[in-house]
Amino acid sequence: MSKTVYLFGSAAPPVLEVDRAVEELQRRGWDVCLGLTPTAAGWLGDRIRELEALTGHPVRSAYKRPGAADAWPRADVILFAPATFHSINAWALGLTDRFVVGVVAEAIGKGIPTVAMPCVNAAYAQHTQLDVSVARLRAMQVEVLYGEGGFVPNPPGERRPYPWQLAFDAVDRVPARD
């Protein structure tokens, strides 16, 4: 029986590497379902069919219609990476107008283990709401890989390698569900 991870990404540069993230999770034995914010889906628009072929599931960026069947199997864990300043704050505040934010918000109440790794620059990191949101999510049992041992913000405009490995390792540590 395979384990299912929902891999969610928002519009930050590491989302352009999401195919490699999918492949690594699959190599580790995960069935991957990919969800994107609308902007991230736009960035990857010409690659969506390729990503669907890679995962074997539809790539989602919008809520399904009421009564429609689920297109994905049940998640054993959710990984939200990269998670932007907007997505982290919206999630912590319960603002669920975006599909991926709504799913992770609901996952808290459903007890689905969730890992998040932000991707914000140092200018955004100076905004006090980010620390409040990270603390709020951690208080709700979300593993937020931010700061020491996680994502460390870089200066605006500077790109450093995104520490995907930290996120993959955190997903692998989640105990199997019955």
Rank of each mutant, 00 (worst) to 15 (best):
M1Y: 04
V5P: 12
V5L: 04
A12Q: 06
P13L: 02
V15H: 02
L16A: 08
L16D: 10
D19N: 02
E24P: 10
G29Y: 07
D31I: 00
D31C: 07
L34T: 08
L34Q: 09
G35K: 10
G35C: 04
T37H: 02
P38L: 11
P38E: 12
T39H: 09
A40C: 03
A41L: 06
A41Y: 14
A41N: 10
W43Y: 14
W43V: 02
L44T: 06
G45S: 14
R49Q: 12
E52M: 04
E52V: 02
A53F: 10
A53V: 10
G56I: 01
V59C: 02
S61Y: 13
S61K: 09
S61V: 00
A62V: 11
R65Q: 15
A69H: 07
A71D: 14
A71P: 11
W72S: 11
R74P: 15
A75G: 08
V77A: 14
L79K: 01
F80R: 00
A81M: 00
A81T: 11
H86I: 07
I88W: 04
A90F: 12
W91H: 15
W91I: 08
L95Q: 07
L95E: 04
T96C: 08
D97W: 02
F99S: 05
F99R: 00
V100F: 11
G102M: 10
V103G: 02
V104M: 12
A105H: 14
A107V: 01
I108S: 11
K110Y: 03
G111C: 06
I112V: 15
I112D: 11
P113I: 01
T114Q: 08
T114E: 05
M117T: 05
M117G: 00
C119E: 01
C119Q: 12
V120R: 07
V120Y: 14
N121Q: 06
A123K: 12
A123Q: 10
A123M: 14
A125V: 06
Q126V: 07
T128S: 13
L130W: 00
D131P: 09
V132F: 04
S133A: 15
V134Q: 05
R136G: 05
R136M: 03
A139I: 07
Q141K: 13
Q141D: 15
E143W: 08
E143S: 13
Y146P: 10
G147E: 09
G147S: 08
E148G: 00
E148I: 04
G150H: 03
G150V: 01
G150W: 03
N154R: 13
G157S: 06
G157D: 05
Y162E: 04
Y162W: 01
P163I: 00
Q165R: 15
Q165W: 07
A167I: 10
F168A: 02
R173S: 08
P175K: 12
P175W: 00
A176N: 01
R177F: 05
D178W: 00
